[in-house]
Design a binder for these strands. Sequence first.
DNA 1: CGGGATCCTAACCGATACTG
DNA 2: CAGTATCGGTTAGGATCCCG
Lengths: 138, 138
Amino acid sequence: MDTVDRWLDPSDLVDSYVHRCPARELLAVLADKWVLLVLGVLRASDGPVRFNALRRRLDGITQKMLTQTLRTLEREGLVHRAVYPTVPPRVEYSLTELGRDLGRITHAMGMWIVAHQEQLSTARVEFDEREAQLPQPV
Amino acid sequence: MDTVDRWLDPSDLVDSYVHRCPARELLAVLADKWVLLVLGVLRASDGPVRFNALRRRLDGITQKMLTQTLRTLEREGLVHRAVYPTVPPRVEYSLTELGRDLGRITHAMGMWIVAHQEQLSTARVEFDEREAQLPQPV
DNA sequence: CGGGATCCTAACCGATACTG
DNA sequence: CAGTATCGGTTAGGATCCCG
């Protein structure tokens, strides 16, 4: 079975992407507030999703950012955009093959985050408490 | 064996993190230009890493951003910071247990990116070519 | 309905200078 | 060595208006 373990080999990844290179381009794309969420929603939907439907599922996103995010993902070949020239217009988004593949990893990341929420909040609180003690800036 | 597949179950992740919630906080942290790279370098090193060593491995990062990134990761409980009050001072960074766990997933992501670089560049080129044909903005 | 085009502000971030 | 502090340019991104 095709699992993400395929990518978990011990070879030295760092030298491959730490320096400025094509790989950093996609990294920059993924390092975005909305990209991971959009991928998540598209992945969770079992068919194409219309623009406003997508918008409604992403609490807080503006139409500008959604458009921008979708364009970027389309350019990377992760998202497919289908336009039906009806009236009113209808545009449907879905993941490409490549997008679905990557989606499995980002999904794993999302699951990890949700599963560790409490450890993370605890860490934040403790850090902030430690911070609150030391300073003495007159 | 403990693999990231643990997090690849089909349950509905979206409802858990699409809305504003604690989970989105870490997502916001990860959605950063440097965070994934820093995690990657720390993960690849087999011992603690000093500040400037870290800096040298991250091509293009400024000392300000590295400091900031490390502080954030420390706050999230992903990175441990050890200060040795010697002269000159010495500060060593390493992943926490939590950080190593998450690091396995981000590493998978990095590997995926590197493995699919060419498909991604191709997609970009094709998209840009399609773009270059349509417009007619007199 | 699914955007494009503007305007405008907050934040980010790089550069520089200083410190224990 | 490993930061902190400050300043200033750039940009991200929200709000608003409009259009096919």
